[in-house]
Amino acid sequence: MLVRMTTNADAPQTRPRRRAPAGAAVLREDVTEAIRAAVFEELAAVGYARMSIEGIARRAGVGKTAVYRRWRSKLHLVLDVVSEIAVMGLPVPDTGSLQDDLRMLYEVTSRALRHPVASQILPDLQAEAARNPEIAEALQNALQKGQEGVASKIIVAAEQRGEIRPGLNDELALDLISGPLYWRSVVIRSPKLPKGYLAALAHATTEALKAL
């Protein structure tokens, strides 16, 4: 359920550099990152339908050629940026307790989902996904992979501690862990979570997982 909002204390993600083919123009990494940042800002400001390469380039402070040297269209640029959400990762809690692990996960996820940029981008991309299968697939992968990776580790740790029985239905467990917060933050867009909501949600989810 996450968006490419950096969560690990807003630390930048490190990607391996690729060697350019002999004779190829070298693409400056700082320009690439400026364009990616501009995509998020432009999506939040005008939405996918009204977003343009010209607007992205202007916001990034580069020429259109710099964008087209990296991506051949607006669609491919957005697909690339959205797909990066899947690899950014969420921190895996390790508190020694299923309920505390879930509460920590909810706190980090809630901050990411309620970030001003994320709260604008996700609903717009979801609407666009209904019309564009490529965006739908990229968004689904981005939202699921990051959350599934963390949730599965939380479940495995809880199984090893004997807090829940082994062999739970993974899909149902993920729905229980991820669904309520995503529903409230992204679908109905509640402006503010009630006091104690995340703690109560962590407790309720823990009891539900134990009952599976």
Rank of each mutant, 00 (worst) to 15 (best):
V26F: 00
L79M: 10
P166T: 12
R36Y: 09
Y68N: 09
A118R: 01
A34N: 09
Q144E: 15
A200S: 13
L201C: 05
S97Y: 08
V3C: 04
L27E: 15
P123V: 15
E159T: 15
A173R: 01
D101Y: 02
G96I: 03
R189M: 10
K74L: 06
K195R: 11
L172S: 10
D80R: 00
P91A: 10
P123C: 08
V62N: 12
T95Y: 09
R111L: 10
V31N: 09
R189G: 13
R131G: 09
S83H: 11
A142S: 12
R36L: 14
T7R: 00
Q144H: 11
L176Q: 07
A157M: 09
K192H: 12
M1P: 04
Y182G: 11
L174G: 08
F40C: 01
A37Q: 13
A9Y: 15
T6K: 12
L139V: 03
L79E: 03
P12L: 12
V187K: 06
R70M: 06
S178R: 11
P116T: 10
S73Y: 06
E29V: 15
V117T: 13
E42N: 01
T95P: 07
A208P: 02
N132Q: 12
D170I: 15
V78I: 10
D30L: 03
Q99E: 15
L172I: 08
G146F: 01
A151F: 05
E171L: 12
R184P: 00
P16H: 05
